[in-house]
Lab assay of single mutants.
Amino acid sequence: EPELVFKVRVRTKDGRELEIEVSAEDLEKLLEALPDIEEVEIEEVEP
């Protein structure tokens, strides 16, 4: 069974934007590691 992958769009407080694809596990780590995120948009990517 393929692992869930999420497309994550992040905007930081200083206005930088970042778009990455991460696994569910990595997404959890990412959110814990970035306390200064202003906006996060997450969508599931079809395998």
Rank of each mutant, 00 (worst) to 15 (best):
E41W: 15
E39H: 12
E38L: 13
A33D: 07
E43C: 11
E25P: 07
D26C: 11
L4S: 05
A24S: 06
D26K: 07
E19N: 10
V40A: 04
L27A: 01
D36P: 05
I37S: 06
K13T: 06
D14K: 04
I42R: 03
E39S: 14
V8I: 08
S23Q: 05
E3D: 09
P35A: 14
P47E: 07
V22M: 07
R9P: 00
L4Q: 08
E44K: 12
A24D: 02
T12D: 03
I37G: 06
D14V: 02
L34S: 05
E3A: 09
V10F: 15
A33Y: 09
E41M: 12
E41A: 07
R9W: 03
R9N: 01
V8H: 00
I42H: 03
V40L: 11
E38T: 09
V40C: 14
E25W: 14
E32Y: 13
A33K: 06
P35C: 14
E43W: 15
K7C: 08
R16F: 08
P2Y: 10
A24Q: 07
F6N: 01
E39I: 15
E46R: 14
P2L: 08
E38F: 13
V45R: 07
G15T: 01
V40R: 02
E38Q: 08
E38N: 05
E17I: 15
G15V: 00
S23A: 08
L27V: 03
A33T: 10
E46K: 13
V40Y: 13
G15S: 01
E38H: 08
R11Y: 05
E21L: 15
L30M: 07
L4A: 06
L18V: 07
P47H: 10
P2G: 10
E38A: 09
E1W: 12
D14H: 05
V22W: 02
K29W: 09
T12A: 04
L31Q: 02
P47L: 11
A24K: 10
E28R: 14
V5P: 02
E25K: 13
E32V: 07
F6K: 03
L27D: 00
E1P: 11
R9L: 03
E28Q: 14
K7A: 02
V45I: 12
R11M: 05
D36G: 07
E39W: 15
I20R: 03
V5L: 11
I37L: 08
K29N: 05
L30I: 07
L4P: 06
L4T: 08
D26P: 01
E32P: 02
G15P: 00
E17D: 06
I42C: 12
L27M: 04
G15R: 02
E32K: 12
V45D: 04
D14Y: 07
P2W: 09
K29E: 05
V5N: 06
P35N: 14
V10S: 00
L34D: 04
E38S: 10
